[in-house]
Design a binder for these strands. Structure first.
Length: 468
RNA sequence: GGUGGGUUGGCCGAGAGGCGAGGCAACGGACUGCAAAUCCGUGUACACGGGUUCAAAUCCCGUACCCACCUCCA
């Protein structure tokens, strides 16, 4: 079975047919770097990271572009509030975002373009739109340039809306628009309220780019006029993606073949607003669970399903994930586990619009099979499959992306092993003498040092209790 | 007003006409000196009211409630 994806534009699951055999070009709308990222923000990144890994796993050569919006109204406003330059705020928050994504093993994109670095490309596109009669400079001398919605008959096609049915924008500042639904391609510099650093020269006077144009220009630059998949959060469908598509097509670009949108993570039934406080910021959440566990929690739900975030559910997910890790540890005791093949049921689940919940079910089924058998070779096969599946989901505990593991330090392991071995010997003697009180006391003593002892048919085994 | 999505067992979370996805929790059993880990077993879930059908959580009609977007939100 080949990959099938739900395309927002057609509202159905369709076979994925790339423009070029064996290649996939993906553009994902990243973040406006205005504040610290919270778990809601990074869900989108995790979802599209899974898409990317699955495409790569099935043999595609993937070009993955994820932008950052590093200049916009909110950045300017927040920076002004905080009394620091907007570019410093954007740069700092960009750094936070990069760290947050790395901590949940989201692969760096092929390239991460920023709006401020692509003003010439945007101006070029605006110019073309003006020439073609789809954009106009505001007649009020504001320096704004607007896209002329009425000039593009298929405006609204992405979200299935008719222009006349749209709620007239209660735009506080209609500033010379021909139609209230027209949107800004270029925003003239407001001398009295905006820093000079936030303005770039243009044929329409100094100003800065509108929001939507950056994605059209950057997608075109790095992926070409036509590319395979465009992704982002559901809220971006309108106006952002509708506008992107209208601009690009009006400029003569076919643009994206498929549109994918991930659903929200909410708290208390409400959108995770950026002003909600910091308890759900990624570093905060990672004080409670490990990055791999947070990622597992996200991957356990389908990307198009709304998730109601709760720490209880997060903790449960973490417990489930540890079961998988425990199995891998067990298998590793027989010898190194090589990454194997993904089971057919897993591939079928992933091919069906990235059915990660069903894929995770296969993961657990495979763990159970591996735990059930007494045969080390069979167990190794299961473990290899488990590692392959985890790899696709970006959850392989052995991935160096999760940082150094205790078990990686061979000298330390040997030292602890020597110390524990002596104690275990005493415990074995006590057990042989049926002095179970003493045996348990020794086990407790070891446990107090943070080391868990388990008895197996092959004898006692110790492991570091790292909260798992 | 327009557009789209949702309501599934104690909890999380899939499925989209017929076989109880999976996880967490709980209970029983096996293994163990006791544990731990693991395995086996245990559930008459699909917001409500009608309808279609041999068969409906799934399709249709209606109702209720919730959510998102409608011009700079992942």
């Amino acid at each position: 079975m080949a990959l099938r994806l739900y395309d927002t534009a057609t509202r159905e699951v369709r076979d994925f047919v790339p423009l070029e055999e064996g290649k996939a070009g993906i553009y994902v709308c990243g973040l406006t770097v205005q504040s610290e990222p919270h778990v809601g923000h990074v869900r989108s990144a995790v979802n599209f990271d899974v898409l990317r890994r699955w495409l790569a796993h099935t043999g595609y050569d993937v070009t993955f572009i994820r932008n950052v919006t590093d200049i916009d109204d909110k950045i300017l406003a927040k920076a002004a509030e905080q009394g620091r330059p907007w570019f410093n705020l954007a740069y700092a928050m960009h750094g936070e975002l990069t760290r947050a994504l790395a901590s949940i093993n989201v692969l760096p994109p092929t390239y991460e373009p920023g709006a401020t670095g692509h003003v010439p490309e945007m101006l070029e596109m605006i110019e073309r739109l003006v020439e073609r009669g789809h954009a106009y400079a505001a007649e009020d001398g504001s320096g704004d340039v607007y896209f002329d919605v009425r000039s593009w008959p298929s405006y609204g096609e992405l979200t299935g809306q008719a222009v006349d049915d749209m709620e007239p924008a209660e735009d506080a500042d209609p500033r010379g628009k021909r139609d209230p639904r027209d949107f800004a391609l270029w925003k003239g510099w407001k001398k009295d309220s905006e820093p000079e650093t936030a303005a770039w020269p243009s044929p329409y006077g100094p100003g800065r780019p509108g929001w939507h144009i950056e994605c059209s220009a950057m997608a075109g630059k790095y992926l070409g006029p036509a590319f395979d998949i465009h992704g982002g959060g559901v809220d971006l469908r309108f106006p952002h993606h509708e506008n992107e598509q209208a601009q690009s097509r009006a400029a003569g670009h076919p643009f994206a073949s498929y549109w994918l949108h991930n659903a929200w993570i909410t708290t208390a039934g409400e959108k995770m607003s950026k002003s909600l406080g910091n308890s759900l910021q990624v570093p905060k959440v990672l004080e409670r669970v490990r990055g791999v566990e947070l990622r597992f929690y996200m991957v356990s739900a389908h990307y198009r399903s709304h998730v109601e975030f709760s720490f209880e559910a997060l903790d449960e997910a973490a417990v489930g994930f540890r079961r998988i890790e425990t199995f891998l540890d067990r298998a590793a005791a027989d010898g190194p586990v090589a990454v194997g093949e993904v089971p057919a049921a897993f591939a079928a689940a992933m091919d069906d619009d990235l059915g990660t919940p069903a894929a995770v079910a296969v993961l657990f089924d495979t763990v159970r099979e591996g735990n059930r058998t007494d045969d080390a070779a069979e167990r190794a096969t299961s473990a290899g499959q488990v590692r392959a599946m985890l790899g696709v989901l970006g959850l392989d505990p052995a991935d160096p992306a999760w940082g150094p593991q205790v078990a990686d330090d061979a000298a330390l392991v040997a030292a602890v092993d020597a110390l524990v071995a002596g104690l275990l010997e005493q415990r074995a003697e006590a057990r042989a003498a049926k002095d179970f009180a003493r045996a348990d006391a020794i086990r407790d003593q070891i446990k107090a040092a943070g080391i868990v002892v388990e008895d197996t048919p092959a004898g006692p085994r110790w492991s570091v209790d790292d909260g798992r």
